[in-house]
Design a binder for these strands. Sequence first.
DNA 1: ATGGTTGCTTAGCAA
Length: 261
Amino acid sequence: MQIVTWNVNSIRARKERALAWLTTHQPDVLCLQETKVTDEVFPRAEFEALGYHVTVSGQRTYNGVAILSRVPPTEIMRRFDDGEEETAARFLTVSVERVRIICVYVPNGRVVGSEQFAYKLAWLGRLRRYLECYCDPSQLIALCGDLNVAPEARDVHDPAAWQGTVLFHPRARAALQELCAWGLVDAFRLHHSEGGMYSWWDYRQLAFPRNQGLRIDHILVTQPLALRCTGAMIDREARKGQGASDHAPVMASFSDETSSG
DNA sequence: ATGGTTGCTTAGCAA
């Protein structure tokens, strides 16, 4: 099973690219973030024509997540259901075969000290509580999405410059570590230890050709799924050229059985 | 040099 997460920065602006990418790569599951459309407007028919089931949780203008799957999804949830008010479409979870897929678009946080940064930290805390309440680390679970946090210095092109900003802040990093402490590991880091591997590059300042990026999009998996993880990669090709999202797809592959290695 | 780009929505905001 191949699972992919991709912040497309508007599914309408990226529709042709996303359709072409799916046709080429044909993953079993594609988690999308920043679709920026209401559920009625999501271009579902074009993706269904490629053989995908389309599950969406969107809103006008901002945010929006979706999960495309080759197999019909079950156990769909669109909210934390933690009793707190929520207006942003940032969370969607489904089961595909025996794997629980959780698609998230974590708040960016804008500026440290802002209301939005407090919201980001609180949101990550709610996600941790969701895992505690609704999931178990012994299950096959993949938490996929734009986490808007670079875990370590090797995930940031200029750690000194980014230190203390919302994408590489000690409190945001600690909140991400708290998620992992529940029982998740970074699928990408199971297979790659080098720095300079990023999933997002600012549109400005020629950041992509200079590889001035951050690795903020992640596929985090429970230990039983980690044991099946046969590979992971970031598709830089999808970030190239005119009309690209500012994020690249992050991919991970899993065998049907636990690997003996 | 308080800059730069993209998308949504239409000039201002969010990323």
